[in-house]
Simulated assay, not measured.
Amino acid sequence: MKEGRNGMLIAQVTDIHLGFDPGNPAELNRQRLDQVLRALIDGPNRPDLLLATGDITDHGDGDSYRALAEAFAQCPFPVWPAMGNHDDRANFAAHFPHVPQDGGFVHYVVPLPGRRIIVLDTLEPGRHGGAFCEARAAWLTARLDEDATIPTLIVMHHPPVEVGIDWMNTHPDEPWVQRFSAAIANRPNITALVCGHLHRTITAPWKGTTVAICSSTAPQLALDLRPMDPDAPDNRPMIVADAPAYALHRWTDAGLVTHFETAGEPATLAKFDAGMQPLVRMLMAERPG
């Protein structure tokens, strides 16, 4: 895998929810995924690899995983998926046999030149929120102990941080959060946590690292930070249809820089032509070296 002057470029898609409209090969969520994949494949920022961080199907059914495998097959770069609360491990394994499983969980290490990605499994069937049991904590601890210095990116569906969207919040006292927090304590080589689940673009500091949460290719959550009373519906928007989103994580020796983007064709208001050349020259001449 290449790594040039600009470091390694890692793309992320999340919360694809393929199969929300069962039996429809032209469903909206597939169209939105294909729009993002075209941007990654044909655009100027083709990544070295793609992370698909959970809820990659809506019902965890075999037909949806089959369609997802077909969609990812067009990618000229590796695709590494994670499990979300809408996923099913057995059906996933039938269509993604190359993705490692260990002890019944879809967690594994992606070794890279001078660094590594650790993909975690936070699925607990029947639960919408995250899960991280003692067995998964022991597995993660063992992987982290194998090399305590190599820069490490942790990838997981559920973010362990509270973000203020009341109906989708993670409470800091949830047992799985406490267990995960203990597993990564005093690990300065953890560069960042990359997550999904919230269908919004969010970054937050947490336990000495940064949590980068990518918005979804499927429709997104409305941004409303007011408290919510589950016994008093107030007609607030909950799901909105902004453009399908993705993230680009530029990982260099200096750390991780994340760019959040949407797929589509925005209007170009300026381009690098003779008229803009003096500005570009001036700005780049101001830099040392």
Rank of each mutant, 00 (worst) to 15 (best):
L50Q: 03
G7K: 03
L40G: 01
Y108R: 02
V280G: 07
T152S: 07
G164R: 09
L33S: 02
I165D: 02
L221H: 12
D242G: 15
G196T: 04
F77I: 01
G126C: 05
A90T: 13
I190P: 01
I190V: 12
D273F: 00
P81A: 07
P219S: 08
G129L: 11
N45T: 15
L221W: 07
W139T: 01
D166S: 15
N235C: 12
F272I: 15
T217H: 02
F96Y: 09
P205I: 10
T53S: 12
R136L: 03
N85W: 02
A148N: 12
L68N: 05
G103I: 04
A39M: 11
P227K: 09
P227T: 07
T57E: 06
N169R: 11
P188Y: 06
H95D: 12
P97A: 09
C214N: 10
T201V: 15
V110A: 04
K2V: 15
P237T: 03
T191V: 14
V36N: 02
R136K: 10
N169V: 06
A254N: 11
G289H: 12
A274R: 12
A67T: 09
P151D: 09
R179E: 08
R250K: 14
E70T: 13
H107Q: 15
P172H: 02
R187P: 01
T191W: 04
G126E: 08
V106N: 05
P188T: 00
L50S: 05
P219Y: 07
I117D: 00
A183Y: 00
R179L: 08
A270R: 13
G289S: 11
E3H: 13
Q277F: 10
D88A: 06
G104A: 03
A254C: 12
I184Q: 01
H98M: 10
